[in-house]
Write a protein that binds this DNA or RNA. Structure first.
Lengths: 217, 217
DNA sequence: AAAAATATAAAACACTTGTTTGAAATTGTC
DNA sequence: GACAATTTCAAACAAGTGTTTTATATTTTT
């Protein structure tokens, strides 16, 4: 912790163990889930003593939560940047905006990429409810939603709040679904690549949004 | 298990215990997940001995799978009926077809309804991969997909296979999302009812489908 | 009614779990 | 270099797990 202070040897050593445990946590929890990953598995993978999880994190649960927090902040930083860039670009189309958001969420949709695996696990965990969703998502989810909501309102100011929120959920659905079920996609559409999915989502989402925006006024 | 033969007293008694265990499984597994539900919890809820799970089902895993199979067949029967009815109705619109499918999947979207809870658990389980997805879904999933695919092709015969399948995944995404995250919907849109979601999905899905069908020819 | 088959019961089994303990080792400070 | 603080370590702990066992009860068949 000791935010931004120069670490001495002991603190650096501790930080290394913590990072190794967080990395092991990402790998093992994603692979086998929380309950089927033992503290012994984790400490063996991180090459440290069994007691290290409790010493450094205060328990298995907390290591789990910390792992999500680290990932959540990584993801939000990327998304904030993308949206800020796009909303400040002149003459950007609805498709451009959607493509930016969607591709940012899906371009690491590679099973080898831990980032996408952790995102998938995060969804699983919200569903499993072993950990309270607020404990995982915090306020970042709301921030994310209002961020996109505002940039959407710029295009169609006549859109009412209710419809805008429904469309946000729809966009979320379109993005999360391939994130979760990419294997099924590949099974049915063997020559499918990620860009193909992204363009499809952009197309459908844009059509859906316009169905509201142009049907109302 | 003695298919359609008249059961004697012993067999009927066994069937009762099995049903009680399956009911308890639906309730407890949905509530706490597989790993956090013990055989002792199950047998206590079903009011039978601990050994009953192993005696009647051969283990906890198999009880879990049997529970899914029961639910899967219930669901497929309903869906087959709805689709058959709609495809045989003359002058049915695309919206009518979509509404039928979507509302059939979502109309029991009530947390008290065990049917919707089991469906939700089924998705969770496919993600968690404790049990192989084929073990849960079997061939019913493919049957379901081709069923809808064909009825969709009737409307837009120019639609190529690839696009049709992408649109099927999209429809799946739009339906599953509220099934999984209904609580989030209510949190953001407090006056939301199920029919409102259904109509929204129909609107977006229809727009997405037409974006393909009418853009191609 | 006797024998065979089936179902229930309580206890024991073998094993894994997360966490704690107390000592040993390492590192920082004076 | 001595004392204090921090980290690592192996062992032990207490609780919970799914399953098996063995005996008892119940029902069906002969």
């Amino acid at each position: 912790m000791a935010a931004n202070k120069t670490l001495n040897g002991l603190e650096a050593q501790s930080a290394q163990v913590r990072d190794r445990l967080l990395d092991a946590a990402e790998r093992l929890f994603c692979e086998k889930g929380f309950d089927r990953t033992s503290v012994r598995d984790l400490t063996a993978a991180a090459d440290c003593n069994i007691a290290a999880v409790n010493y450094h994190f205060g328990g298995k649960d907390n290591l789990y939560i910390q792992m999500f927090h680290r990932q959540m902040h990584r993801m939000m930083d990327r998304h904030r940047e993308v949206i800020a860039r796009l909303t400040n670009t002149p003459d950007v189309t609805l498709e451009d905006l959607l493509r930016g958001i969607v591709s940012q969420a899906l371009n690491q949709l590679d099973n080898n990429d831990p980032s996408s695996a952790v995102m998938k696990l995060m969804v699983r965990e919200v569903l499993n409810q072993h950990v309270g969703k607020d404990e995982i998502l915090g306020d970042l989810m709301n921030e994310f939603f209002t961020l996109i909501s505002k940039s959407l309102m710029k295009f169609y100011p006549t859109l009412n709040r209710r419809d805008a929120r429904l469309l946000l959920f729809t966009l979320d659905a379109l993005v999360i679904h391939p994130l979760l079920f990419f294997d099924f996609y590949l099974e049915l559409i063997s020559d499918l690549d990620i860009d193909g999915i992204i363009e499809h989502i952009v197309k459908v989402a844009a059509a859906g949004i316009r169905a509201y925006a142009e049907g109302d006024d």
